[in-house]
């Protein structure tokens, strides 16, 4: 006689819950409550970020040292998160760097699809250390086929009268051409 192994139940034995489709909401098959919260914030910058944004307004990328950990930190902060000591000795850094990583995005911030992709990534700033040491920004004057990790780039700044003390005072990073 065939000695069949008894089929054991699969856990979880059942899956409670009621699936709601977008059409159920559109057709008002279920009731719901809609809410649009309105809250505004003014985030304090603190010393280090205030100085950094002021630097951007003046067309400079500023970094600060942690001598104990041998770091030249950008974006700068008032303390080193590893040794928890204060940072000191601000310096202006060249506005050139290397692409550490990037993406070619067909999504806008709300996950809507866009036709012309956004080139975005992390720039490791040349004079800062240890690598990677830098920040996120856009890339321009290059195609999605040209962009690559390790590419040398340089900041393209907004005209001085349009700068307002924001990360957007840099428009994007472009390929660092020969001779620059």
């Amino acid at each position: 006689m065939e000695n069949r192994k008894e089929e054991k139940p699969t856990y979880p034995k059942y899956a409670p819950g009621t699936h709601v489709r977008t059409s159920d909401i559109r057709d008002k098959k279920i009731t719901y409550t809609w809410w649009e919260p309105e809250i505004q914030y003014a985030w304090s910058l603190g010393n280090a970020m205030s100085k950094f944004l002021q630097g951007l307004k003046e067309g400079k990328i500023l970094g600060v040292h942690c001598h104990k950990c041998n770091r030249l930190i950008v974006p700068p902060r008032s303390f080193c998160e590893y040794c928890y000591g204060p940072t000191e000795d601000w310096v202006e850094l060249k506005d050139t760097g290397t692409i550490n990583t990037y993406s070619v995005s067909y999504l806008d911030p709300n996950a809507n699809r866009i036709e012309e992709p956004i080139l975005i990534g992390v720039i490791s700033i040349d004079e800062a250390y240890p690598k990677p040491m830098g920040f996120m920004h856009y890339f321009g004057e290059m195609s999605k086929d040209e962009i690559h990790i390790g590419m040398k780039v340089k900041a393209v700044w907004k005209p001085e009268d349009e700068r307002e003390g924001s990360i957007n005072d840099i428009k994007y990073f472009k390929p660092l051409g020969g001779g620059e």
Binding site: L45, S103, L107, M136, Y138
Partner: peptide, 12 residues
């Protein structure tokens, strides 16, 4: 201050 003004999507 540093990231949101660039209008990032988390998928990035």
């Amino acid at each position: 201050i540093l990231d949101r003004p660039l209008n990032p999507n988390l998928v990035w």
